[in-house]
Simulated assay, not measured.
Amino acid sequence: MNSIIFHGDLFVAELGLEPGAARLVKVNDTERTTLATGLAVPVGIAATENDLWVSG
C-alpha cells in the first residue's frame, strides 16, 4: 500500500486479495472514489504540482 496527498485529496494504492485486484482510490472528507482497478501491483505513487502517476 502507498498513499500521497495531491490537490487536497488522499490517493491510496490498495493491494487486492487476488492477482490483478489492486486499485487506486481517491479519498476526501465526503467520498471515496475508485480511479483505477485491475492493476497488477501498484508499487508507487508520485506527483508534481499538476500531475499524478501510479506505477502498476
Rank of each mutant, 00 (worst) to 15 (best):
M1G: 13
M1I: 05
M1V: 04
M1E: 13
M1D: 12
M1A: 09
N2S: 02
N2T: 07
S3F: 08
S3Y: 10
S3N: 07
I4E: 11
I4R: 07
I4T: 13
I4C: 06
I5T: 14
I5E: 11
I5G: 00
I5V: 06
F6W: 09
F6Q: 10
F6H: 14
F6T: 06
H7A: 09
G8S: 07
G8L: 04
G8C: 01
G8Q: 08
D9A: 15
D9L: 04
D9V: 03
L10H: 05
F11H: 08
F11T: 00
F11D: 06
V12A: 09
V12Y: 03
V12I: 13
A13Q: 09
A13D: 08
E14M: 11
E14P: 03
E14W: 03
L15V: 13
L15R: 13
G16M: 05
G16R: 07
L17G: 14
L17C: 04
L17P: 00
E18V: 00
E18A: 12
P19G: 09
P19Y: 00
P19I: 00
G20C: 01
A21I: 00
A21G: 12
A21S: 15
A22F: 01
A22C: 11
A22R: 07
R23Q: 15
R23C: 08
R23L: 03
R23N: 10
R23S: 14
R23P: 03
L24R: 08
V25C: 12
V25Y: 02
V25I: 12
V25A: 06
K26W: 01
K26Q: 14
K26I: 05
K26R: 15
V27Q: 07
V27S: 07
V27A: 11
N28Q: 07
N28R: 05
N28P: 09
N28F: 05
N28E: 09
D29C: 00
D29S: 15
T30M: 00
T30K: 10
T30D: 11
E31P: 04
E31T: 10
R32T: 14
R32L: 04
T34H: 02
T34N: 09
L35C: 13
L35Y: 04
L35P: 14
L35T: 14
L35K: 10
A36G: 08
A36M: 15
T37Q: 15
T37A: 10
T37P: 08
G38Y: 06
G38S: 06
G38Q: 06
L39S: 09
L39A: 15
L39F: 02
L39H: 02
A40L: 10
V41Q: 09
V41E: 11
V41W: 08
V41A: 12
P42D: 01
P42E: 00
P42K: 01
V43F: 06
V43T: 10
V43M: 01
G44E: 07
G44M: 06
I45V: 03
I45D: 05
A46Q: 05
A46M: 03
A46S: 14
A47L: 10
A47P: 04
A47E: 03
T48C: 02
T48H: 02
T48E: 01
E49S: 11
E49C: 02
E49P: 00
E49A: 15
N50W: 02
N50M: 02
N50S: 14
N50H: 12
N50I: 03
N50Y: 07
D51C: 05
D51K: 07
L52G: 10
L52F: 05
W53S: 07
V54L: 12
S55W: 02
S55I: 13
G56E: 08
G56Y: 10
